[in-house]
């Protein structure tokens, strides 16, 4: 959304100006919370996506690490160095660079997990709501069973089972995929239930009948008529879930079943930093933690704004 607000480039000028004048953009510009949250998310996305170019150091390059640089505090404090603005960890890694790379992994896992849960949940919800009867009952009971397991438990279970089945090397290389699956699988029932509820309302509306009268195929009625009308709540759940998924990933990594310290996400950073908290080296865990909180908060605020802005009846 914020991308459309950037100044027009010569070639696309007219189209960008039209986008700038659109209702959505107007709504965005006149909501200070949305602008702030959007700016934070945009900045974080930028930092995460371009981490290899933006970050002052490469925390993955072991050759560039120097143990002499370890335990530098953040900048205004005594003993700080300007090349490490947020300090360094026990290995001499730059905390700021580690956070950038950590956000990259956290966002990657979060977004992929939410997308996975959304696609599965929306399709199952649509099918259950539109088909009704036995199909509906069966799918919803499966969702109920899934909901009775806490997300963290499911994730631990999936991780444990996969870890036991696969050889260690393969397990390591698939770690991100396993995390995405584990977090996504525990979230689909929320999408499915919401979509099913809205579908039950929508499918009896006359516009759906109008489509059925002229013989539109069932899957097309579901995807092109009902789906756009049930996506509003899905978007809100997706953004709230994005925050939740990022936190889940951080929790798993903090517990040590997520990503290894060689490939640190925000959760891993908080975990490793946590070991040094009581020796007074607070910056290793506080900065990644604050980043996590800020990221999740900004995403949720942006989601709330989007819900209001995308509802044509509220405009």
């Amino acid at each position: 959304m914020s991308v459309t607000a950037t100044p027009a480039r010569p070639g696309l000028g007219a189209r960008l100006r039209a986008a700038y004048d659109s209702d959505l953009c107007y709504h965005f510009r006149h909501s200070p919370v949305a602008v702030l949250a959007g700016a934070i998310v945009a900045l974080m996305l930028f930092g995460a996506i371009f981490a290899p170019w933006v970050a002052p150091h490469d925390p993955f390059d072991l050759a560039s690490l120097n143990l002499m640089d370890s335990f530098h505090p953040p900048v205004p404090l005594a003993g700080s160095v300007w090349t490490f603005p947020l300090g360094t960890d026990d290995q001499g890694r730059d905390v700021f660079s580690a956070i950038l790379f950590g956000m990259r992994i956290s966002l990657e896992v979060g977004v992929a997990a939410v997308l996975f849960a959304m696609v599965v949940g929306v399709l199952i919800g649509l099918l259950a709501g539109y088909a009704g009867g036995v199909v509906d009952a069966a799918l919803m009971r499966i969702a109920d069973v899934q909901l009775t397991f806490p997300a963290i438990l499911v994730s631990l279970l999936v991780d444990g089972v996969v870890g036991a089945v696969l050889p260690t090397d393969l397990h390591r290389s698939l770690q991100i995929g396993i995390l995405i699956f584990a977090i996504g699988i525990s979230n689909w029932p929320q999408f499915a239930r919401t979509v099913r509820g809205s579908t039950l309302v929508e499918r009896n509306k006359e516009y759906v009948m109008a489509a059925r009268v002229i013989g539109v195929a069932r899957w097309r009625v579901m995807l092109s008529h009902i789906l756009p009308n049930v996506l509003g709540p899905v978007l809100i759940i997706a953004t709230l879930n994005l925050g939740f998924a990022i936190i889940s990933e951080a929790t798993l990594s903090f517990l040590g079943v997520g990503l290894p310290p060689t490939e640190p996400s925000l959760g891993t950073l908080i975990n490793t930093g946590n070991n040094f908290l009581f020796s007074g080296d607070w910056w290793m865990t506080v900065f990644p933690g604050a980043t996590l909180v800020l990221m999740v908060l900004a995403i949720n605020l942006l989601g709330d704004w989007l819900r209001d802005a995308l509802n044509p009846r509220l405009r």
Partner: peptide
């Protein structure tokens, strides 16, 4: 089906918003 169609009661529900 092409040769028949239907006009509905509620104009607020019969058009996909």
């Amino acid at each position: 089906r092409r040769r028949m169609n239907m006009i509905f009661q509620d104009p607020y529900a019969s058009l996909n918003p």
